[in-house]
Amino acid sequence: MDAGLSGTDWVLLSLVAALAGAFGSLFGIGGGIVLVPILIAFFGIDTELARSASLVAVSVTSMAGSLVYLREGVTDLDSASFLQLPTAIGAVLGALLGGVIDPRAIKIGFACVILFVSYRLIRHATLKPRTGPPTKSEWGFALLACLSAGILSSLLGVGGGLVFVPTLTMLLHRGARESSATSTYLIGLTGAASALIYAKAGHMDYALTAPVALGILIGAQVGARVSKHIPAQKLSYAFAGVMVVNAVLLVNKAVQGA
């Protein structure tokens, strides 16, 4: 299960992971959505190993990003605690399913999710946050969304922030920065739970995961700090463009059976 990394690959992986970590922290989506397709499409790494490396990276992104956000006091730990239970249940279900699903199906599923996220990012950039306390039905939908986020996170090796951020913004009426901060905290336990299950099943290459985790750690710190100063709308469009290219590459890999 060893990815057989050269020294150049180690450095390159760290740099790519740093970029993914910066983007992940900036948007509160954890970096996995950027990292997994790159690891598969550009580095030729197995889907299973890319997924588990990404999940560890997601945990590190969460830890590093949460440090910054906790210090600023923008993380809503109270709401996060309620959302964590359905997310954890979903993560465990996803990890159990992940060992039996065809990697090609996962690649195509991932491409679909990327396209959806790109659409959400563009749309979200033009949405106004809602105000007032959330209703009981909104809380119910939020808990269901978190269950699905957990399953998605485990299956694809992403943080689940792509579901958490819109859930917190649209259903629980949190501000954009508070949503990103709370999502960054939430993805930590989700990523760690799935990664531990994959590691126990032997689907983890520690030599590959280490540079990825280090790169993510550096990138996440930068992302969390610059998120206040970057024009979100323009960045969302650029990010969405890169993700669409990633989706096309992934589908190509899946079709070729690579």
Binding site: V56, S62, G188, A195, A199, M204, A213
Partner: peptide
């Protein structure tokens, strides 16, 4: 890696 998985 084990540390990063158990810390959260």
């Amino acid at each position: 890696i084990q540390i990063t998985m158990w810390t959260p």
